[in-house]
Design a protein around this nucleic acid. Structure first.
Length: 734
DNA sequence: GCCTCTGGATTTTTT
DNA sequence: ATCCAGAGGC
């Protein structure tokens, strides 16, 4: 089935329009990945273009891997000669090869978020301002935004008018100096410096332009200005550029992704061929119609009409539960039901939420019911303290100038090098303008005039000796051998195991060791270098294993690009989704439109079944609130929906039944925690009540609320209040 | 230098 | 609720 004749006419046009710029607007489920892979196969097989001359850029490693696997199926061995990778991976490779031309050390280290924060903190202190007032996070956002738009510290200073902006500019400048002293680049630098390299070395650009005669870009709606410029540079000579995207699925504008790049594309490449893929092969008519209704409310968008030949399918299930526990319980029991009835398999179920914090109640329910699940996101593997520690050692061995890593591990495990000694050492290094590693070496050899107590000096000497041994050995050890040596030399296992959760942490280190072993097929020092590079550029979603027999829990953002038989979107409430930060007065209409696109992305992940679930009461960040149903619910026409477990049709005050869905345990035994018993309302409008805080009042009205009631009371002293019956502890009087 | 307590902040995060 | 950083005590 995988030949071009199985493509629809629009897909075929997208595949076979070769030579010159092509813009493909691909709706969800429209066979985007198929089009890209077939286009590449067509270039190679039919047009006789060498795979060496083709570059395909994706946003995630996972997408790159998936594409690579499909191309291998289509092209066989020839697929190995294609250049295929993420923007960052491609640029990192270019910079390792040619970065020296603009003064970048080929052995540069890549700094992740945490590293950037600690470096920025130092930059802020160096500038001499208060890191409490100017937080590293905020400053870093400024810097990252600037870099995403190719704004250098120099250019930034032209735009910095307010005092705050001027401070940000200072921090940016200092931050860059610290980065270069550490021979490190942050994520944004990897892209921006590549653009810089191409600007400053036209002859180098020409080499890459000639090499990459055909450029393809996936998820084009998510490119920022820097990435756009990069593709413009690379395709500048032949203009054989094909970009694929969907403006309606742009959910990363907060990371400076710029939808306007699509408009700019049409302007920068006059006569670009436009292909629109509107046939959806994924979802039922019902699901697609709901998605369309939701996204149609956006003002800033190009009209697009998706259609499908798939069946109408079942109605969308809308569920209202009492609280997040009940919400989670509903999801798990429904998942079990779907699996038991063979509607979908377990691994074809996903639960999507707006913020990671929502995963907790869900995890608890999945655990309690004994339903296997896998969680994507949250605290990421490579962000775990113990994993970062070991990687810091390896990085330091690979690049001794990396001060962020040095600071991280110089006293881990504790070896008596405290803040004081560290400040003395680094302060001295700074004063002498020598790298920290060199200062350490001098201190160890009792050279130089470092003001150190003999005791401190001794600890530094021991540390330096160990580091030196590691560095020396790194030249002939593979990644996993190096890792083992680090663990042995630092007695890291012993250090971990005395801790409370040391066993788990040690497991993570063993896991890391397994990853490292995958790079042992390379010879030293490439083995370690490649390992470190890839470890810096991975994300959680990359390790998502679609074959594991488990349901998936993840954020709406991370679900992009995936599809599932059954999708549960939970927390369909105002302030949760759309997120409070997108609502006025905090947010603006642009942000609300992005939330709406996020909802569109969520809905369109579903093939057969879609559930929209909300809780009447939710505890978040330690306080409980009652949220209104999400505005996105209002956009879905009633005829597409079937309601369960919520408000009864007739509003009778005696409504007090258990939820219509029955929790089922895997073994058919009662669940450990049955849903809370429904309350009985015994209050009627006109009755006098007493509240411990608000005093006496009169009941104005009552209304049922999932498993609870909302009671409106006019208090004598404090006026009208809306209360939740189970919480208010109202007492009837008179 | 190390330990413990308190206060502040906590959207999303392809890389 | 919970995690983390910084301050202050031992």
């Amino acid at each position: 089935m995988d030949n071009n004749s199985s493509l629809n006419s629009a897909q075929q046009e997208a595949v076979e329009t070769i030579g010159g710029p092509v813009l493909i607007l691909a709706g969800p489920g429209s066979g985007k990945t198929r089009v890209i892979t077939h286009r590449i196969a067509y270039l190679v097989k039919t047009c006789g273009i060498s795979p060496r001359h083709i570059l395909a850029v994706t946003f995630t490693n996972k997408a790159a891997r998936e594409m690579s696997a499909r191309l291998e199926a289509l092209l066989g061995e020839a697929a190995k000669d294609l250049s295929l990778g993420t923007f960052h991976a491609v640029c990192a490779r270019i910079l390792r090869q040619k970065g020296q031309e603009i003064g970048i050390d080929p052995g540069f280290t890549i700094y992740d978020d945490d590293d950037q924060i600690s470096l920025m903190k130092r930059a802020i202190m160096d500038v001499g301002i208060d890191p409490k007032q100017y937080t590293p996070r905020v400053m870093l956002t400024r810097v990252s935004n600037a870099k995403s738009q190719l704004i250098t510290p120099e250019k930034y200073s032209d735009m910095a008018h307010s005092y705050f902006e001027k401070m940000a500019q200072q921090c940016y400048k200092r931050y860059q100096i610290l980065l270069s002293q550490s021979k490190a680049l942050d994520f944004d630098d990897i892209l921006m410096k590549t653009v810089e390299l191409f600007n400053e070395r036209p002859e180098t650009l020409v080499r890459y332009q000639t090499r990459y005669r055909h450029v393809l870009v996936d998820e084009f709606q998510d490119t920022n200005i820097t990435q756009y410029e990069l593709t413009r540079q690379l395709a500048g000579k032949y203009k054989n550029i094909c970009v694929v995207g969907d403006p309606d699925q742009s959910i990363y504008t907060w990371r400076q992704a710029d939808i306007r790049n699509i408009l700019k594309f049409e302007k920068d490449y006059p006569g670009a061929k436009l292909v629109v893929l509107e046939q959806n092969y994924r979802s039922t008519k019902t699901i697609l119609a709901a998605a369309d209704k939701v996204i149609s409310r956006n003002q800033q968008r190009k009209q697009k009409s998706l259609w499908t030949e798939n069946e109408k399918g079942t109605p969308i299930t809308v569920v209202e539960t009492a609280d997040e526990q009940e919400e989670a319980q509903f999801v798990v029991s429904e998942v079990e039901k779907l699996v038991k009835e063979h509607v979908v398999s377990l691994k074809d179920c996903v639960v999507l939420y707006r913020v990671n914090a929502q995963s907790r109640a869900l995890e608890e329910a999945f655990l309690r019911f004994g339903v296997p699940y896998r969680l994507i996101g949250g605290t990421r593997f490579y962000q775990r303290r113990e994993v970062k520690d070991i990687i810091a050692y390896l990085r330091l061995v690979h690049n001794p100038h990396d001060t962020v890593s040095l600071r991280r591990i110089i006293n881990v495990p504790q070896r008596g090098i405290g803040q004081r000694t560290l400040d003395d050492l680094l302060g001295w290094a700074n004063q002498k303008s020598i790298p920290a590693y060199e200062a350490l070496s001098l201190a160890a050899r009792t050279e130089g005039d470092i003001p150190l107590a003999p005791r401190s000096r001794k600890t530094l000497v021991d540390f330096y000796d160990m580091l030196k041994r590691l560095v020396d050995r790194s030249k002939d050890l593979k990644a996993s051998e190096m890792l083992d040596l680090v663990i042995e030399q630092t007695a890291y296992e012993k250090y971990l195991l005395v801790e409370e959760d040391g066993e788990d942490r040690w497991e993570n280190i063993k896991e890391l060791s397994t990853v490292a072993r995958k790079y042992d097929y390379l010879d030293p020092p490439d083995s370690l270098t490649t390992f470190l590079e890839e470890v810096s550029l991975v994300s959680d979603i990359d390790s998502y294993d679609e074959n594991a027999d488990a349901a998936t829990l993840t954020t709406l953002h991370q679900a992009k690009g995936l599809e599932f038989g059954a999708v549960f979107i939970v927390g369909m409430e105002e302030k949760v989704f759309p997120h409070a930060r997108a609502l006025p007065p905090l947010g603006d209409p642009t942000e609300m439109e992005e939330e709406r696109r996020l909802c569109y992305v969520g809905i369109t992940r579903a093939k057969k079944r879609l559930y929209l679930v909300r809780a009447g009461r939710r505890t978040y960040l330690g306080n409980t609130s009652n949220n209104l149903p999400s505005r996105f619910m209002d956009d879905i026409p009633q005829e597409l929906v079937k309601k369960t477990g919520g408000r009864p049709e007739a509003r009778t005050s005696s409504w007090a039944s258990a939820p219509p869905w029955k929790p089922i345990s895997p073994l058919g035994t009662p669940v450990a925690n049955p849903p809370p018993t429904a309350l009985k309302l015994e209050l009627r409008p006109g009755e006098r009540v007493r509240h411990e805080k608000f005093g006496n009042g009169i009941v104005v009205s009552t209304s049922p609320l999932a498993n609870d009631f909302q009671v409106t009371v006019a208090f004598d002293a404090v006026g009208v209040k809306k209360l939740i019956l189970s919480y208010a502890r109202l007492e009837k009087i008179g």
